[in-house]
């Protein structure tokens, strides 16, 4: 005989892993549903936990609408955008595993952007701005910078993420930013060449043996970022 699990109509049990001074502390939290059929998002759960049980719970959020890209957390070990991810019974919510945790669910993010500091767009170089960009360019600029793609990226894993030093190795987001320059009709040839060199310097060759990255909002990272960069890099190597 199978036991049918009946969903509790009033509550949802989750674990929130808080973090302080280098130590994890899981807290069991009973989310009180605001109506019977409510399917709360992870962000709703965190907000209620802050309101009721853990008043100083630290987590990032902004828009509540999957646009700002700052609320990413791990749900059961996988990166999810908290404001638009439904939580189920017994789920575990914790900070992203791919970046250093500061407090509770807040990770340090800025070392990703710092990796590209001084290495992207310098100016339009006087080029005509009145040219249309391709659909691929626009697909890349739909990235909301949520960093979900850092998960399982062998290239990013080569970094010592807790270190204060500049991250030596790249990640799908950084490669996306570089490929954006390559795709931009306004970029000069030398800017494009530069971007490809940067990608190589960030360890693009690691991508050769990788099945490919996964974007949290569905950008085709392998087809539109990694493969084209590799192709261009090879072309330049052969010349």
């Amino acid at each position: 005989m199978t036991v049918r699990r009946t969903e509790d109509k009033k509550y949802l049990n989750v674990t929130i892993v808080t973090h302080s001074e280098g130590k994890d502390m899981p807290v069991d939290f009973k989310y009180q549903k605001r109506h019977e059929r409510e399917k709360p998002m992870a962000l709703d759960v965190l907000l209620q936990a802050q309101e009721t049980k853990i008043p100083d719970l630290a987590f990032r959020y902004g828009c509540r609408a999957r646009n700002c890209g700052v609320c990413t957390i791990d749900i059961n070990g996988l990166p999810r955008i908290a404001c638009r991810s439904v939580v189920r019974e017994n789920d575990e919510l914790r900070a992203m595993s791919t970046l250093p945790v500061i407090t509770d669910l807040v990770v340090r993010r800025d070392q990703i952007s710092r990796q590209l500091r001084g290495k992207i767009y310098r100016s339009s170089g006087g080029n005509d701005l009145n040219v249309d960009a391709s659909d691929d360019y626009h697909e890349l600029t739909s990235c909301i910078e949520c960093y979900a793609c850092l998960h399982n990226c062998p290239l990013h894993e080569k970094n010592r993420v807790d270190s204060e030093e500049r991250y030596e190795y790249g990640n799908p987001f950084s490669l996306l930013k570089l490929q954006t320059i390559v795709m931009d009709p306004v970029s000069s040839n030398s800017q494009k060449n530069d971007a490809i060199t940067q990608a190589v310097n960030l360890g693009l060759d690691t991508c050769l043996d990788c099945p490919g990255c996964k974007c949290g909002i569905g950008i085709d990272l392998k087809g539109k970022v990694v493969d084209p960069l590799i192709k261009e890099a090879k072309k330049r190597e052969n010349n």
Partner: peptide, 20 residues
């Protein structure tokens, strides 16, 4: 603009990160 405000987000990000 395609991608709405996110397109502005990228341009603003670029303007700060682009040089040191």
């Amino acid at each position: 603009h395609k991608n709405s405000g996110v397109a502005f987000g990228h341009a603003n990000w670029n303007s700060i990160v682009k040089d040191t």
